[in-house]
Amino acid sequence: MNVLDFARAFFTDSAHWHGYDGIPTRFAEHVGYSLEALVIAAVIGLPVGLVTGHYGRGGNTLALIATAGRALPSFGLLVLMVIWLGLGTLPVMIPLVVLAVPPILVTTYEAVRSVDPSPVDAARGMGMPEARVLFQVELPVALPLIYSGLRTAAIQIVSTATIAAYVGLGGIGRYIIDGLYQKDYEKVVGGATLVAGLALVTLAVFWAVSRLTVSPGVRRSG
């Protein structure tokens, strides 16, 4: 049996399509954890990145935080958190957020900082308040790069959220971990395929959001 046969067997087995261990449930759980982690990471990373980028300060500190964040192994952090906090969603969210904040933070900072200074100068010279300069002049131009940071973070979260299964939670990781434990390779391959599929869906969502919210003037010139 090769990988394709495993995958076909997994997806054609009707038992895999309903119940608490069915694909829709596990998929929804996975999307739920991922979204929650992404939103928390964005709420931390975006404002800090926007403000530091706007004032052009704190780049070195950010780079340091980012390197440290990337160096932390997610799985190690998960084990640590479980020992410290016990089981639950929180110990899973912490490593996911730690993983996702650096790309969001650093890319947002770079995106705002690299906006052409002359429109910004013109905007200030016309008497535009500082907050409007950030949100109406810098942000619309920085948007494509900011999305790329969010997208990187989202893909990493989606693939790493499988670790939730280690601490007894759901998500697509269940298939992989249970499959490995039960030596049920259909399940393992099926789970891996679902994760890859979700990553592709994530890419598509970002592409669509970017089409809808980035001005054609920026898309073409940037």
Binding site: S118, P119, D121, A122, P140, V141, V214, S215, G217, V218
Partner: peptide, 10 residues
């Protein structure tokens, strides 16, 4: 200003 400094998204 010299390079016009137009807002490219508008």
């Amino acid at each position: 200003i010299q390079n016009a400094g137009l807002f490219q998204h508008r």
